[in-house]
């Protein structure tokens, strides 16, 4: 019993002190941490709107979007020329 309660406490405790917040398993809902920012520009440098319907659900900050999202936005946002996605201080750019 004590061991089980220790696990219940330790898992989110370790998650709370992990470098990238929020993360899965930490019960860090609505903590306003780890906002994902995406900028999509056309050939003239004008900012394009990203349709929320392009996503299956909400863009959860607990997940890492840097690897998959830039190329996906390149493919699915009409007239996209460059895409920049930032999360937890890291940025990834893609040229479409």
């Amino acid at each position: 019993m004590v061991l089980a309660i220790a696990v219940q406490v330790l898992v989110p405790l370790v998650a709370l002190f992990s470098p990238d917040l929020p993360n899965r398993g930490g019960f860090q809902m609505y903590s306003a941490l780890g906002t994902v920012r995406m900028t999509v520009l056309d050939d003239d440098g004008h900012r394009l709107r990203v349709d929320p319907d392009l996503f299956a659900g909400i863009v959860r900050p607990e997940l890492s979007w840097l690897d998959a999202l830039p190329d996906y936005l390149c493919k699915h946002v009409p007239d996209a020329a460059t895409v920049e996605v930032s999360q937890n201080g890291d940025t990834r750019r893609a040229t479409c």
């Binding site: 219940q8 998650a15 709370l16 930490g26 019960f27 860090q28 903590s31 306003a32 941490l33």
Partner: peptide, 20 residues
């Protein structure tokens, strides 16, 4: 009961940041 309590506790602790 302890799992529910842990959920509330860490939901609160994670909100102790300057953004929220």
């Amino acid at each position: 009961m302890s799992q529910l309590s842990v959920c509330y506790l860490f939901a609160a602790l994670s909100k102790l940041n300057t953004t929220f």
